[in-house]
Design a protein around this nucleic acid. Structure first.
Lengths: 195, 195, 195, 195
DNA sequence: AATGAATGAGCGTTCATTCAT
DNA sequence: AATGAATGAACGCTCATTCAT
């Protein structure tokens, strides 16, 4: 039992959780290391034991949260009997996860920074690719898409993501413009029309 | 003809144009008033003749650019003979405007700040409302949607916006995942399925 | 009459004088910009109106003080009737200037930083070259050195500088080990022996 | 034989050697204990087992290196048959030692700190006194200085040190301005002229 | 004897804002 | 209307020192 390592892991996690909160509340630039350290229950100096810079923390947090989001989705997702039920379950789960942990401000903070910073952009692009593949995998298990070509499915998956992202954004700024039902129906329709 | 006022209007516009560029390049926080003033061809002190704070500038710029975007859309938009052509024209125009003037980083900068700041959020919400109405107005001119109920059209318009926003975001981070054609077809299908 | 420029020049000079004092007292690294600004009667922020970095200030101060030292020497130096009087006058003047304005700690601070920093080193090397030429010029006016070869005079001048630097250093650490008289005599002797 | 003590002595020496290197490269202030510990092959915490502070290390290093320099000089120095050979041998040895172990930046770092810090100054003054006595001892073995008065020899020794220090400084900043031969000749001449 | 997590004070630098000119 | 010197509060980062392990 290595107490040092355990302690380090605990503080690392506290910093990650604290930064999740502070970045979500204030955005990357306005979140100060003082804020984050205070929230984590440490001093600013301690921060540099665990991270080499603010940017590194942001990147690590981003990787971690995007991964956690995907894991939580995959763990809880259960496809329905038909494509409609499957989509409905997926959308419901997406909406649910989206409301947890201050996800919206953090996610769009990632996006905005990705647009201007190439190394973040690369990461977000990978993340999109991941989701495209995940969605294709799910779609392929339905009778509707079983025999669709891969490039068609790719476009379809990207469209579904666009719808969800756009819904998420709209919901964050002007809640209740769209119902979950509308989103689900639209997705199902797009699937039927393309496949 | 008041020379003072004309001069003032000119420098105001120069600051607006300069800040459009600098905010798009660096984001709100990292854009310094020095950068903006230099870009505008003035000094920092001059800034405060036209704006009372950096935040005010950002808000004014946001209002102005969102308005300009809409005006440019409305001016150039010509509905086609049928809904499909109309949608295709609208999407093409949206994509075109979206690529001008470094629009993506600025637009999503607005969105991200809206999520965290209530007065900005209010503004963006109004902007969404505006677009919803504009889209409803366009849809109503087609035979497909002529007799649709208003609340159905609202959901439809919001869905179209979500698709476009989501496409815009994806395109900014990971270009060429989706074709314009896909987006148009999806919109047409959603229209058909809902109306 | 440009008040802005005058004001700027005054503050610039105050910063230069303040840094002269603070660098001499604390050395380059331990002298903080807060110290220097306080000593100058300004705040830290004002510093960056006049200098782009701490290092730039140090370099400017170094150039300025080395130049001032040389100017003061040249202005006050009057050769004697013979080489002995000339040397005696020169040494007395050197010793006098050396005791003004906290010169020793500043000068050796320059030297130490020169050893480790190439751009400073280049500057100090130029300064040495300057002094060698100045001393050669003075020596050439004496009948003893009138017809000496240039490379011999160069070695002679460098030796004289070594003696003065070495004396200056020793005097700064362990005062009164050597008399001015000794130094003068030694220089005269070296001149006689080489020329 | 105490294993603990031997181990302690070894790590002490490693820290001394490491700090010799790091102080020479970066100077006192910019040398961090992290740098030194890493160079020594330990961690920062271990440092405080052997030294109570950074300043103490610097002082111990200074004492040790000044002593080592003198020991190395005395061990290798062999007087010649006449004063000229003796001086030539001494100068050659001085120049040789001076080029070893990054001596210049360290030595002048000592000097600069001595000028500003009284306890270091005291130490350097003792060091100078030591060298004066050493040089007097050497000079007294020559027929030229055998019967010189002590205070005359003291001035002479101080002058020789000044020349060597000045040469060392000049050589460190602007190499090859003076030849070793010139320095030797000058010293011999000063000896002849004073004694 | 040695590690390494944590502190806390300090530093160089940036920048929105003010105001005399 | 415009300049630009000055402020003052932050901020990211460093580092000598402490202490539980």
């Amino acid at each position: 039992m290595n107490k040092h390592k355990i302690k380090k892991e605990i503080s690392f996690q506290k910093f990650m959780e604290a930064s999740l909160k502070v970045f979500a509340e204030k955005g990357y630039e306005k979140a100060s290391l003082d804020d984050i350290a205070r929230e984590a229950g440490y001093t600013k100096g301690a921060f540099y034991i665990h991270f080499s810079s603010k940017e590194e923390l942001f990147l690590k947090l981003m990787k971690s949260r995007l991964e956690v989001f995907k894991q939580q989705f995959l763990e809880s997702f259960t496809p329905g009997e038909n494509i409609e039920d499957t989509v409905r379950a997926g959308v419901a789960l997406f909406v649910h996860l989206t409301k947890k942990d201050n996800w919206a401000p953090l996610y769009f903070e990632f996006c905005v920074n990705a647009i201007r910073n190439d190394s973040i952009k690369k990461h977000m692009a990978d993340h999109y690719q991941d989701w495209i593949e995940t969605i294709i995998f799910i779609l392929k298990q339905s009778k509707e898409c079983k025999s669709c070509k891969d490039d068609v499915l790719k476009q379809l998956a990207a469209t579904i993501i666009a719808l969800l992202d756009g819904y998420h954004l709209q919901e964050s700024i002007s809640p209740n413009s769209m119902s979950q039902d509308t989103i689900s129906k639209s997705i199902v329709n797009v699937i039927h029309s393309i496949c």
